[in-house]
């Protein structure tokens, strides 16, 4: 509990620092009320279901720590011991292992209660060559959580920003839905929630699973017509609500090919640090200088 509060306060502090840096000049006075009213720090609020990281699940014992899930969970626990600004969450996707099953796509949709037309992690199929010399790979595309996120500076109302731990988040209550950030993201990782419901295509009455609160950002919002996140831009947030509780992102856990890894890049012992530093790691559109924190292995 204490740990949790501390994390939060620190997150807020860093956030303030960030603001002050940019809030020089004529706008400074205008920002204060927003911070004071708590609008901005809501996103960092504690995730649901009690506070603090959940205890490690009891797992089947592996030989020599080979269990990748076990290892990642331990990495997570270690990271959560550190202050938030010393974590740097990252994902590694091994394209040699991705079997193109879309489990991650749908796991994410189910986890975050995403409506029709929104997928934070579609899987792109890339086919090359002519018969019989063809090759194909599957490229899952979550948000890259760019170190230099082009989506952030364009937001006119500072509804989206990079957290100290590197995750680019969106405050749904602040976002005015201008969609400027969508155009700015070179990875098409941002989606506009136009307000569709599954029931629009199926019978018209709300489906139970779309009436449940979404755990995103630990806010437990129930999605309704005309209220946020409808009308907002949404994106992958590395399952912030799960990792803060010591759980792996839904897509990582579900992955049929065990192709997706997650952890703290600032921790040299973590699995992702190990994998991301391999010579066969690359990032999408590296030339743009966005410094994605999603690495692909080929």
């Amino acid at each position: 509990m204490a740990q949790e509060t501390q994390t939060r306060i620190r997150a807020l502090a860093t956030r303030r620092a960030f603001l002050t840096r940019f809030a020089s000049g004529i706008f400074a006075s205008l920002i204060v009320p927003a911070v004071a009213s708590g609008v901005l720090d809501q996103v960092e609020a504690a995730p649901q279901e009690g506070a603090g990281p959940a205890p490690m699940p009891e797992l089947p014992e592996g030989m020599n720590g080979q269990h990748p899930i076990e290892r990642m969970l331990q990495d997570l626990q270690r990271a959560l011991q550190k202050p938030v600004d010393q974590r740097r969450w990252a994902m590694v996707i091994d394209l040699r292992k991705c079997v193109g099953c879309y489990a991650c796509t749908v796991a994410c949709i189910a986890e975050n209660k995403l409506p029709p037309g929104i997928a934070y992690r579609p899987v792109i199929t890339e086919t090359r060559g002519t018969y019989p010399n063809v090759s194909r790979r599957f490229i899952p595309r979550p948000c890259m959580q760019c170190e230099n996120p082009p989506c952030v500076p364009v937001c006119p109302v500072r509804a989206t920003w990079k957290r100290p731990d590197g995750i680019v988040v969106i405050n749904y209550d602040q976002c005015i839905g201008c969609r400027y950030c969508i155009t700015a993201c070179p990875y098409a990782a941002r989606s506009f929630d136009s307000g569709y419901f599954y029931s629009d295509f199926e019978g018209g009455l709300p489906q139970p699973y779309e009436s449940l609160p979404s755990p995103e950002y630990g806010e437990n919002r129930v999605r309704r017509k005309d209220t946020s996140p409808v009308g907002n831009v949404r994106k992958c947030h590395f399952c912030l609500h799960r990792i803060e509780r010591g759980q792996l992102p839904a897509c990582v856990l579900s992955c049929m090919g065990r192709a997706t890894y997650f952890g703290d890049l600032n921790d040299p012992q973590s699995l992702v640090s190990e994998l991301a530093s391999r010579p066969n790691a690359f990032r999408l559109k590296e030339e743009l200088g966005t410094e994605p924190k999603v690495f692909y292995l080929v």
Binding site: S24, L30, I31, A34, R158, S228
Partner: peptide, 17 residues
Amino acid sequence: GHPLRFWKLFLSTNPTS
């Protein structure tokens, strides 16, 4: 997406945008 929040453009303008 949220026309009624247009005032945020003034109250929390992002200087980099």
